[in-house]
């Protein structure tokens, strides 16, 4: 790695360029061989979550499942909503609207269908036809044929589906663990910020996890800078 030392920086980049191109080419070939289809496009994703997801962000036409955390769900919606996508939330009557607004989801482009009843799959499909990101919570397990029909529709429309709970064909499963609230004590203070470990389990590769603020004291999401916490240092 010292062989470029004598060269001018411009020459160094020139010499580096073919190698980087080769690496990217190889990486894309690997991705093509792994992906179920070609040229998946990414939609805007919050920078704290994006590096954990397979492919480096939320994909159009893909399904993600979130394990029971509404804050994590909102962290997924913030990116697309801020970039101008419409978001639909189907079958989640307890979706906290104020929290969503404060975290940065644009309520002007948020549509709620709290009680879809038995027609939840039909409603989800109809909403996915027109909105960029759709959240559903299945009241029960859907049969495989209707799931694949919905998946095909999502792929055709380029909508992203986020499911609260398990889902058979999800691209990745996001879950929370080790959540630590700060600001609250034994009878004093109030909840102000939380550090959690977000783990993303995808169909290929090892689970990736990261420690992040969800939310931080300014009600934003961000990764914790790589200063080891006291507990980790002690352990």
């Amino acid at each position: 790695m010292f062989e470029y030392g004598a060269m001018s920086p411009a020459a160094a980049t020139l010499a580096e360029a073919p190698t980087r191109a080769t690496v990217e080419q190889l990486q894309s070939r690997i991705r093509q061989m792994q992906a179920t289809r070609l040229d998946t496009r990414l939609i805007a994703t919050h920078p704290a979550i994006a590096p954990l997801l397979p492919g480096g962000g939320l994909k159009e036409g893909a399904t993600y499942s979130v394990d029971s955390s509404a804050t994590l769900l909102m962290a997924l919606l913030v990116g697309p909503s801020a970039a101008g996508s419409w978001c639909g939330v189907v079958g989640v009557p307890e979706f906290g609207v104020e929290a969503a607004q404060r975290f940065g989801i644009d309520l002007e482009r948020l549509v709620l269908v709290p009680h879809p009843g038995d027609q939840w799959l039909g409603v989800a499909a109809a909403v996915a036809d027109v909105l960029g990101v759709v959240v559903i919570r299945p009241p029960r397990r859907a049969n495989d044929s209707s799931v694949s029909r919905l998946t095909a529709r999502l792929r055709q429309r380029g909508a992203t589906l986020i499911v609260l709970g398990p889902w058979p064909q999800s691209e990745a499963m996001l879950s929370l663990s080790e959540s630590n609230w700060s600001g609250i004590g034994q009878g004093h203070g109030h909840l102000s910020a939380r550090q959690v470990t977000v783990t993303v389990t995808s169909r290929v590769g090892r689970p990736r996890s990261a420690r992040m603020w969800l939310p931080d004291p300014q009600e934003q999401f961000r990764e914790i800078e790589s200063v080891p916490s006291l507990r980790e240092a002690a352990g």
Binding site: E108, L112, G117, V123, V127, V130
Partner: peptide, 21 residues
Amino acid sequence: HHGLSRVQSMLGHGGVLTAAV
């Protein structure tokens, strides 16, 4: 609007909501 009106005709007028604080 067309898509959401379709959902409204499935679930009723109050089935599709927008929110404000």
